[in-house]
Amino acid sequence: MFASARSFQNYLAIIVTALISSLFLFPAYAQQDDDVKPIGHIELSNPADLTKQQAEQIYLSVLPEIKAIFAMSDIGAATKYTSWKRYNNAPYISATHGARYVDNYANEIAKDYGKLKRGETYPKGSILAKDSFSVTSDQSIFPGALFLMEKMGKGFNKPSGDWKYTMVLPDGSVFGTTNGENSDIVEFCIGCHAAKATLDHIFYVPKGYSKDP
């Protein structure tokens, strides 16, 4: 767990600063996946190489703090996403999220998450949530941002496939949202997910990490 309340606040300050800086360090790629270098998030230089069991144990130990962070947000999904179905069996490193460990959740409306066929789309109101944390090679643990995708009505934003992307910083504040405040900041999300346009712009859990058979 985070060492103390003071060190936890220091971690928050470091991560918030890094996240803000990262959005101006990298241009967006037209196509991305979790097996290519990330663009849009500053890449962790020394991520720990954890086993699935180690990553899961760390995630469960810090989950109360993560939940408390996002409970401070005024975004409803950020306060309750951990009550939704979790689709991965352990945190995994996402290259497109700066080599951070992430987890995937989806609300009941998006219950077909990962099962969509080409050309199909998710219903309006579907919400996907991806929280994140960092573990460095010296075993320091840092909270990360929460990334939300919400399926909006037809015509909301054609390039995004009518998905609204929202990035919630690890102090509970919203840093950017599609067609809203700081919309330009989350445009790299649209460019990244465009690689999966035929699957309604959705990346699924990597092979070997899905809870579903």
Rank of each mutant, 00 (worst) to 15 (best):
P143Y: 10
D138Q: 11
F156I: 02
K130Q: 07
I127S: 06
K130P: 00
M149L: 14
Q139W: 10
A129S: 08
S126M: 07
F147R: 07
P159F: 09
S137V: 13
T166G: 15
G180R: 02
L146Q: 00
T178E: 01
K130F: 03
I141R: 12
F142T: 03
S160H: 09
F175P: 05
L128Y: 01
L148I: 07
P123K: 04
A129D: 05
P123Q: 03
G176Y: 06
P170S: 04
G180P: 02
D131L: 03
K130E: 01
V135F: 13
P170R: 03
S134A: 15
A145L: 03
T177Q: 13
F175W: 15
E150A: 07
L128R: 02
L128F: 11
S173V: 14
P123F: 06
F175A: 15
E181K: 15
G125R: 01
V168N: 13
G176T: 04
P170M: 02
L128C: 05
M149F: 10
P123M: 05
K124F: 01
T136Y: 06
G176F: 04
T177G: 04
S134E: 14
S134N: 13
S140Q: 12
V168Y: 10
E181D: 10
T177M: 10
S132A: 14
N157T: 06
L128S: 02
M152Q: 15
N157Y: 10
G172D: 14
E150S: 06
Y122P: 03
L146I: 02
Y165N: 09
F133K: 03
K124L: 05
G176W: 03
S173Q: 14
L169S: 12
L146M: 03
Y122S: 09
Y122R: 11
G155T: 12
G155M: 14
S132V: 11
F175M: 13
G153I: 08
P170W: 00
L146S: 05
G161D: 07
G180I: 03
A145K: 00
V135Y: 14
M149G: 01
P123N: 07
L146P: 01
M152V: 09
S132R: 11
P159V: 10
M152K: 15
G155N: 15
M149K: 08
G172N: 15
S160I: 03
G172F: 10
T136S: 14
T177Y: 02
N157M: 09
P143A: 11
